[in-house]
């Protein structure tokens, strides 16, 4: 009975996945769980799955992706915080991880994680509907100063990177725009394409097709350097708001107290994964670029990001809870 046999094999294999862990020198000796604190389909999920698959191959053990969505990513991240620090539970974190501490009452200490490494960073694009009579960041700022609080921008929701990235822009440019939140990136893009709200800052991958078709105009990109996908579009800093810089990023963390040897092994494997042309190509397609960091540097990076967004949340007086 081939069916029964394969069934038994599957059962044995799955039980083996949960067998007790041995010494950490032979880590990993069973499957690793990668908690993605967002639902399937979003950028966090796509990026996390891609790296998990490749990372599992490098480590010689399967990495099981576990989507635990909810509460802006804090439910899944809380699971990682409370998991045993044995290297068998990891979590994908994104810019939301640096924003959530200032938006929500979290059931965990946002700084108490063992950083593993950065996966990639992604660029945001400031786009407008063509019916808005401006063609550059300078003109946009001038128009906004003429009509404070009247121009409207769309975002994927209160506390989303589209929201905070634009709030940072408002602070740095000294202007007032009205925030119109939507339930997710799709609906907000829809509204801007229809010309109902006319300004949005969103990811490269979400905006590029519409920039190319002329339905949206790109005024600037949010990174330090110009993005190779849109070489003619200046950065926000070049276009007149010199202090502005905001990036999306994705990284991996482990529960605090995970042995350093395991962290180092994971970081080394991640670094190899980041060198794979296939993986780099996939990141390109997601509008993101691979960026390597040591665990210690990634830890510092996360703290800097937290400080940046704490300032924005407090100065822009954004409240949720």
């Amino acid at each position: 009975m081939p069916k029964l046999r394969s069934l038994l094999l599957a059962a044995v294999a799955l039980m083996a996945l949960t067998a007790p862990g041995a010494a950490q020198s032979d880590y990993p000796n069973r499957a690793i769980r990668m908690v993605i604190p967002f639902p399937p389909g979003g950028s966090n999920d796509v990026v996390g799955r891609m790296v998990s698959t490749a990372l599992g191959e490098k480590l010689g053990r399967q990495i099981i992706v576990d989507n635990r969505a909810g509460a802006g990513g804090s439910i899944g991240t809380a699971m990682v915080a409370t998991a045993p620090p044995d290297g068998y539970t990891l979590g994908v974190v994104s810019i939301a991880h640096a924003v959530n501490p200032w938006m929500y009452k979290l059931p965990y200490d946002p700084k108490a994680f063992a950083p593993v490494g950065l996966m990639a960073t992604g660029t945001n694009v400031l786009v407008i509907h063509p019916s808005l009579p401006v063609r550059s960041v300078k003109e946009l700022v001038a128009l906004a100063k003429q009509k404070p609080g009247e121009l409207q921008y769309a975002s994927a929701g209160v506390g989303s990177f589209q929201h905070l990235g634009t709030e940072l822009f408002k602070l740095e440019a000294g202007i007032d725009l009205l925030h119109v939140p939507f339930k997710g990136g799709g609906p907000s893009m829809n509204d801007v394409l229809g010309g109902h709200t006319k300004i949005m800052m969103s990811s490269l991958v979400q905006t590029t097709p519409h920039i190319k078709s002329g339905r949206l105009l790109a005024l600037a990109t949010g990174g330090k350097k110009r993005n190779p996908v849109l070489p003619d579009v200046p950065t926000v800093a070049e276009a007149g708001v010199p202090t502005y810089e905001a990036l999306n990023w994705w990284g991996i963390v482990a529960p605090a107290g995970t042995p350093q040897a395991i962290i180092d092994k994971l970081n080394a494997a991640l670094s190899q994964v980041q060198d794979m042309p296939d993986v780099q190509k996939q990141f390109d397609l997601q509008g993101a670029a691979v960026q390597k960091m040591s665990p210690a540097d990634f830890g510092k990076f996360v703290l800097t990001e937290m400080a940046r967004w704490e300032r924005v949340v407090k100065q822009a007086n954004i409240k949720a809870q």
């Binding site: 069934l7 599957a10 059962a11 799955l14 039980m15 996945l17 949960t18 067998a19 007790p20 769980r33 099981i64 992706v65 576990d66």
Partner: peptide, 14 residues
């Protein structure tokens, strides 16, 4: 669910 669709649930935990 677990074998066919591939849901990530352990059959037995220790």
């Amino acid at each position: 669910f677990i074998w066919g669709i591939g849901l990530p649930y352990p059959l037995l935990m220790n």
